[in-house]
Design a protein around this nucleic acid. Structure first.
Length: 261
DNA sequence: ATGCCTAAGCCCCTTAGA
């Protein structure tokens, strides 16, 4: 079964591209981030028409996550991690959605970017990562076969970015962000792409600006973390890179892992 | 040091992204 993650940067603007990708690659599960719509604006009918059932957690203008499954209804387990936004009284942002599909726990996340660094948004990112770690420890204790996937907004190591120098001051690769990510792996989770590409050089994001795509100025921030049972079932993992070069593309590409049945 | 692009809201500029 193929499980994929895709930060689509606006579901309304991306709908034709998204449906094309679903029909061409037919993942069993597709986790979306940055749907950028309120719940009632989610085009569930469009996905039903091509055989996908969905659950979603929307928000006005920003953020928003969804889980799509081929031919079956994802069974929702939890939405949110119980953490307020960076501004007082703002409430929780739509960044986390967890569901069961086919005996696999799917934990879809859109981690805060954290820029500018330092500042309250960066602190919010670190707090969020701590909450995530606690959730993942709980899944671990319960021995649930799980994949925690999405846009982590963390460049794990220098081999995961085209230019260390250009990105040095960015929240995506501050030592605190990297340590928090490394802690998740130290807890026993397997980074699917990194495990199969230990030398690095795999990107999942290319900025819209300054010809980043044409120059291959990218980095890796979209990740799939596997619990031990699922890591044992991993057959392959990859990036659907060509979708970044199509018309009206997202600035991210889809990333996926293939698991033995 | 800044803009480079893109999306969405509300309405043609502002906010946010990474």
């Amino acid at each position: 079964m193929r499980i994929a993650t895709y930060n689509i940067n606006g579901i309304k603007a991306r709908l034709p591209r998204l449906k094309e990708w679903l029909e061409e690659t037919r993942p069993a599960v597709a986790c979306l981030q940055e749907i950028k719509t309120m719940d009632d604006g989610f085009p569930a009918d469009e996905f039903e028409a091509i055989g996908y059932k969905a659950i979603w957690h929307g928000q006005k203008s920003f953020n928003g996550v969804a889980i799509l499954a081929d031919g079956q209804q994802p069974v929702e387990v939890q939405r949110g991690l119980g953490i307020d936004g960076p501004k007082d009284g703002e409430g929780e942002q739509a960044r986390y959605l967890e569901a069961d599909v086919n005996g696999v726990r799917i934990c879809n996340l859109y981690l805060p970017n954290g820029n500018p660094h330092p500042g309250p948004k960066f602190e919010y990112k670190l707090d969020w990562m701590q909450k995530l770690r606690e959730r993942m420890k709980k899944l671990w204790e319960e021995e649930i076969p799980a994949v925690v996937l999405g846009d982590f907004n963390v460049i794990p190591e220098n081999k995961d970015v085209w230019s260390v120098r250009a990105m040095a001051s960015d929240a995506l690769m501050q030592p605190e962000s990297r340590d928090a990510y490394a802690n998740l792996l130290a807890d026993g989770w397997t980074d699917a792409i990194n495990t199969l590409n230990p030398r690095g050089g795999v990107w999942t994001y290319w900025d819209y600006q300054a010809g980043a795509w044409q120059r291959d100025h990218g980095f890796r921030i979209d990740h799939l973390l596997l619990s031990p049972e699922l890591a044992d079932r991993m057959i392959a993992a990859g990036v659907d890179k060509e979708y970044r070069g199509r018309e009206k593309a997202s600035d991210h590409t889809p990333v996926w892992v293939e698991l033995r049945e």
